[in-house]
């Protein structure tokens, strides 16, 4: 990962360029953590190849393409071909990383992910940009239900990293993992929420980032950065919150979730995704299966396609900010 640099100014009141990164006022950011981590992985493993469907610069894989041009394949605007070709490369012993946006990978190429890759366990890594509300481009570009779609596919590993630290570590982890993976991508200037010197990502492991008896926040993806802010906000009010970060949605760390909700039954989930079929549904499922009843407040996108607009506006409009997570916790404590 590159050295952290000061965060840029968030866009104000207008829909930004599709490429613009919203850092949410983060204290530090890192540039293209996925692209640089993929280069590091490829320096260790020459079988890694890259592909994209006309979104190389937009998914940070151009960093890899510039370093390893012979191992990079442009597939054009053709997502079925992108995923099918990646599966074919995997069948000749390569480790393909295929990038596009969440919406295109999951909506346009679902059968190719399910049958072309997952059914036979083809060793491909789909890395998909613009998860949830990270773009102001409305329903066409906001990947709001991709986790639900991907978690429904047998054999597939599904990961939603929270920041630059985890994006870099997860990239190297999935490169070493044998099997098909879908990973959400935070691109461009990405906030650093977790300390790279102490945090260790592991596929299938949730991480307890705060431990408190009053309320449990369970989060995934970039919402974990906001959840950390919410924990600090609540602490200032004397509320001791736990925070469990679940970056791997599948296979789900059911033990970690079950253990936490066994200790703390007032639960807030926070996800950059619709609140059905993603993390909230998974936590509810663990609660029922484990026989550990909880009170649940769900922070995330409601069952709707979202508006266009600036990221700060959308975060407020759909109640996806740190204050919204804190407010949900307070409601449970009333």
């Amino acid at each position: 990962m590159s050295a952290p640099t000061p965060a840029g100014t968030p866009p104000k009141g207008v829909t930004g360029n599709i490429l613009s990164s919203d850092t949410g006022g983060a204290a530090s950011v890192a540039a293209a953590p996925f692209g640089h981590a993929l280069v590091r992985a490829a320096e260790k493993n020459p079988r890694i190849v890259g592909l994209t469907a006309d979104l190389g610069k937009y998914t940070d894989i151009h960093v890899f393409a510039e370093k390893f041009p012979k191992q990079f394949f442009q597939m054009g605007m053709a997502e079925q071909s992108l995923v099918g070709c990646a599966a074919g490369l995997a069948r000749t012993g390569f480790v393909p990383f295929a990038t596009t946006y969440c919406v295109f990978a999951t909506r346009r190429a679902y059968d190719f992910i399910a049958i072309g890759a997952a059914l036979g366990g083809a060793n491909i890594k789909i890395v998909a940009g613009l998860p949830g509300l990270t773009t102001g481009y409305g329903g066409t570009h906001q990947g709001i239900e991709d986790l639900a779609l991907m978690c429904a596919v047998p054999n597939l590993t599904v990961i939603d990293p929270c920041d630059a630290t985890e994006t870099a570590q997860a990239t190297e982890a999935i490169a070493a993992h044998v099997g098909p993976v879908y990973m959400r991508l935070l691109r461009g200037q990405v906030p650093v929420s977790l300390d790279p010197s102490t945090y260790r990502f592991e596929i299938g492991k949730a991480r307890l980032l705060a431990d408190g008896p009053d309320v449990a926040i369970i989060s995934t993806g970039l919402m974990t950065g906001r959840a950390l802010d919410a924990v600090r906000e609540l602490a200032a009010e004397g509320v001791r919150a736990s925070l469990l970060h679940v970056s791997t949605l599948k296979p789900l760390d059911r033990e970690a979730i079950s253990s936490l909700i066994g200790r703390v039954s007032r639960v807030v989930t926070a996800e950059n995704h619709v609140v059905t079929g993603g993390l909230a549904s998974a936590v509810a499922d663990v609660s029922v299966q484990a026989g550990r009843p909880i009170q649940l407040r769900r922070v995330g996108i409601p069952d709707c396609f979202c508006e266009s607009g600036s990221i700060p506006y959308l975060v407020k409009r759909y109640r996806m900010g740190a204050p919204d997570i804190a407010a949900a916790a307070r409601e449970l404590l009333k």
Binding site: S81, G84, C85, A87, G88, L89, T92, I115
Partner: peptide
């Protein structure tokens, strides 16, 4: 490869040929 869902074979064949 598992065929049957038609339209997959040539996409995977392209990947195999590249590899």
């Amino acid at each position: 490869m598992t065929g049957g869902s038609l339209g997959h074979g040539l996409t995977q064949s392209v990947g195999m040929a590249l590899g």
